[in-house]
Amino acid sequence: MNPALQAWSLYARATKRWPALAALVPFIPVVALWWIVAAAGVFPRAFFPSPPDVVRSFADLVYKGILPEYLEDSVARLAVGAAAGMAIGIPLGLLVGLSRKAHAALWPPLLFFQAIGDIAWLPILLIWFGFGLATMTFVIVYTVLFPVVLNTVLGVRSVPVELHRAALSLGASKPRILWEVVLPGALPNIITGLRNGLGYGWRALIAAEMIVGTSGVGFLMFDARRAGSVVEIVLGMIVLGLLWYIVDAWVLAPIERATGQRWGLVTR
């Protein structure tokens, strides 16, 4: 067997034992290539920093406390937005999904306001609330809300009519059916909605922080742009990617595994 194949089979066996490796190792050649291109000086260093530059700037910003503080701001904004988006979105979705009248009255406006993307609201929000937290919170809640509502409606309507009937003939009342049948039946869709909503909401947050922010990862990146510091921009992008990876791997995926996948409602 040639060495390349041997290395590959070793890698295959290692990733089977430690699945985390499969998520990390592919980045090694990318970073190496990046390093080589930077070191070769194809682009000016100010435009195209090398990996050590980024690590140094990371250490520097952590030491000064700027990065932890900005990261905390961004995550807190996202968490508040997600919580508020769900608190409004899930009940609204249940209402629109269960009641014909509510569906007829609310579905068209929901589709219409969803189409006016979050960021297009920024100018008028700035007039209403000024540069600050209220504007950013509105944008995130708005962004998270629609995917949650629309997917909750889908989820409610995907619950088979037999399950409603089974619950009724076992003596369940309407409120109990809501809690025991409709909500768990819609849960996989609700989580999909939350996933989409967070995906959009998080981008909206970055944009809002760039445009109106005084702190946060988006502000860090845009501030770095003003100062012409490509290193910090790249650092910001990496932090954003990692942050999403953590939210996905540590929050969303475990919920999905414990609910829809366990119940056989979603296939992986």
Binding site: A22, A23, L24, P26, F27, V30, G199, R203, A204, I206, A207, M210, M221, F222, A224, R225, V230, I233, V234, G236, M237, L240, G241, W244, Y245
Partner: peptide
Amino acid sequence: TPLLRFFSVLAGIAWIPI
């Protein structure tokens, strides 16, 4: 797959500054 997922997560707005 992990590489593409990482970059598709960054898609769009995060690229504006650079």
